[in-house]
Write a protein that binds this DNA or RNA. Sequence first.
DNA 1: TATTGTTATACTCTATAACTATA
DNA 2: TATAGTTATAGAGTATAACAATA
Lengths: 173, 173
Amino acid sequence: MRSPTLTEAESSVGSGEAFIVHAEEIRRLILMVSKTAIRDLDRRLDASGAGISGLQFGVMRLLNHESATISELSGRMMLAPATLVPVVDALERKGFVQRSSDPRDRRRNPLVLTENGLEVVNRVHFTSDMDSLAQGLLNLGEGKAQQLQTLLYELVNSLIADDALVDRALAMT
Amino acid sequence: MRSPTLTEAESSVGSGEAFIVHAEEIRRLILMVSKTAIRDLDRRLDASGAGISGLQFGVMRLLNHESATISELSGRMMLAPATLVPVVDALERKGFVQRSSDPRDRRRNPLVLTENGLEVVNRVHFTSDMDSLAQGLLNLGEGKAQQLQTLLYELVNSLIADDALVDRALAMT
DNA sequence: TATTGTTATACTCTATAACTATA
DNA sequence: TATAGTTATAGAGTATAACAATA
């Protein structure tokens, strides 16, 4: 039971069925890996005692590279700006992030890490060698890990070609 | 700034640094792809008019293969049993799923799809050729899509070796 | 004692709509 | 008109703890 509409790409290649099968299986595998990765980070954040969530940590990590506004973060993380307001509120309450202001455009409130925030970002990592994902890649071997990374990179770039929303998404929780 | 503890695997290979870098990047890419896949399904479910969420659909899809209890589903989906209770409640309210009983073990309540539920599962698919992911794989080409699938499969099996929780996770939202 | 299903509860993640201030 | 940030609100997803029924 297929969708009756054929895309140009599908009809030009003529093997849409195979790709659906791939997509379904790849989807399943990717979701399993990502659930594992999210749980890895949550577990490590719990152990760190910093008292922050994965999303809060994702924001701090982006701010570690460069200051950014809520709008800019929302673009990079594929989230609605309103979603980030309580996240930033919490980080400010905990003293890890501060809202600053831009004299040249007073609508903007660039966020900056405090010293405490910096300390947390440097202490807790997104990925540690103890994580299931890192261990899994270790089991896989260097060559295959490299191959996988390359293929995923190409896939994401292919997604970008089709999907404006992924466009500026450079980092995520 | 590394974790001071070395795992056996890491010290035996002696290149933990490289794997951390891989893991960090692969983590990022995988999360982007999975966010895209989840959004694909949500969009399709909205369009289908069935009025169900991704998680609800995931449950129905597992029941399409064979009847299962909440406990069994929670194992396969890596979720707490309590998480699934309101999900099943909603599906039962909508008339897509029914709780039955097992005379041989009266603690168990195997879930079964109703006729309406069956219709929904067969009409809406997890993945369609219109999805960003399917399109991305199409752009990637058959050979690379196959390679990617194989590598992900090996990775998940490597995860399983390290992580009992992923063990029975055969399907996810 | 252990397991299945459940209730109660709470927290995180997420979005939409409507608003204020600024451009 | 458009953008940045916000408030209000709502809903989905998730977990833990404690309990009843059953094994």
